[in-house]
Amino acid sequence: MKKPVFLVTGNDLAPAALALLRDYEVVYAGKAPTEDDIVALCRRHDPVAVIVRYGKVGAAAMDAAPALKVISKHGSGTDTIDKPAAAARGVQVVAASGANAAAVAEHAMALLLACAKSVVALDGRMRGGHWDKSTHKSVELEGRTVGLIGLGAIGQRFARIADAMGMRVLGHDPYAKEVPAHVERADLETIWRESDAISLHCPLTADNAKLLNAQTLSACRKGVIIVNTARGGLVDEPALLEAVRGGQVHSAGLDSFAVEPMTAQHPFLDEPRIILSPHVGGVTADAYVKMGVGAAQNALAVLNR
């Protein structure tokens, strides 16, 4: 008898996750599947579950898989899944929330430190034969204020790191019921006005698209550092570039972008005060296992009800 199918929108899954799916056939969509690729595979295999790593899963894919019961995110962000379409079809959407929290929080702090300490610029200068000890001044983070937008598992872990470094932590999240004692709740206007650095840790929604734009960036302290390890759509990219070049923003550390992969002609590539990484904040060997196991367990929990 043919096993029911799990479709993975990627080219692999952690062995520990695969062990949980031994009663299912696992089909991979490849390294960078398009929506059409995913629809075709759904039509061919009629999966009972989809584990989403890359690409988008929309209504067409769901309609191509009448056996589909659950869509499980390999990670926490579900903005690449059409949740209203899933709800209308009785398909449950679940996420491995918190599985990559440590990885993303560490990466966000790495980007903040790289900006504050001019790590990339100084490395380039030294490789060019320069020794800037007598002229360079970095930004000291102790005693500075960092504003966090989003206080989920990632935001709260970042807050712990910042607090341990002696930073004042402001946090904005209308959905957070409990906030640690070292985080001061703040509205967005206070975040803009009082933060020396701002780090984004919220999901992308229709309401917060381009949250950081020309208006909000102009309301920030001059010389603010911007860090985004969440979703690229939270930032108006031309406005950020202008704010960096104009000096309103000291520097930015970005791990996510409006269009991914980033195009070869993107203007960020020519701005040395914007530090870039290819959406790898949650990509560590440990997080890969935790996200895979979490995604598999969450899907099986729905199927086994």
Rank of each mutant, 00 (worst) to 15 (best):
V5T: 03
D12R: 15
A14E: 04
A17S: 05
L21I: 11
Y24S: 04
Y28H: 06
Y28D: 02
P33S: 09
R43E: 14
H45I: 00
P47H: 03
V50C: 05
I51E: 01
R53Y: 10
R53L: 07
K56H: 11
V57Q: 01
A59C: 09
A61G: 06
A64S: 03
H74P: 01
G75V: 12
G75A: 08
T80F: 12
D82T: 08
K83Y: 03
K83E: 13
P84W: 10
A86C: 10
G90I: 14
Q92G: 03
V93I: 07
V94M: 05
A95S: 13
A95T: 08
S97W: 07
A102W: 08
A105Y: 09
A108C: 13
L111I: 06
L112Y: 05
C115A: 12
C115V: 04
K117Q: 15
K117G: 03
K117D: 10
A121M: 14
G129D: 13
G129I: 15
H130F: 10
W131G: 03
K133S: 13
T135Y: 11
H136P: 03
H136E: 13
E142L: 11
R144P: 06
I149E: 13
L151Q: 01
G152K: 06
G155K: 08
Q156R: 15
A159S: 11
D163F: 14
D163K: 08
D163C: 11
G166L: 06
G171V: 04
G171C: 12
H172Y: 15
E178R: 02
R185P: 03
R185G: 01
W192A: 00
E194C: 00
D196P: 07
A197K: 04
I198S: 02
L204N: 05
A206P: 00
N208R: 12
L211I: 09
L211F: 08
L212C: 09
S218Q: 11
S218I: 03
K222A: 07
G223Y: 08
G223L: 12
V224F: 02
I225C: 04
V227T: 12
N228D: 15
E237H: 13
Q248Y: 05
V249H: 01
A252W: 01
G253E: 13
D255I: 06
F257C: 10
A258P: 10
P261Y: 06
T263G: 15
T263C: 04
A264Y: 08
A264S: 14
A264Q: 14
Q265C: 11
P272W: 07
P272L: 09
R273P: 02
I274M: 07
I274D: 01
L276G: 12
L276C: 14
H279G: 14
V280K: 10
G281T: 04
G282L: 14
G282T: 06
T284Y: 08
A285C: 12
A285G: 15
D286V: 14
Y288W: 07
V289L: 06
V289Q: 07
M291F: 06
G292K: 02
A295W: 00
A296R: 00
L300K: 03
L303F: 04
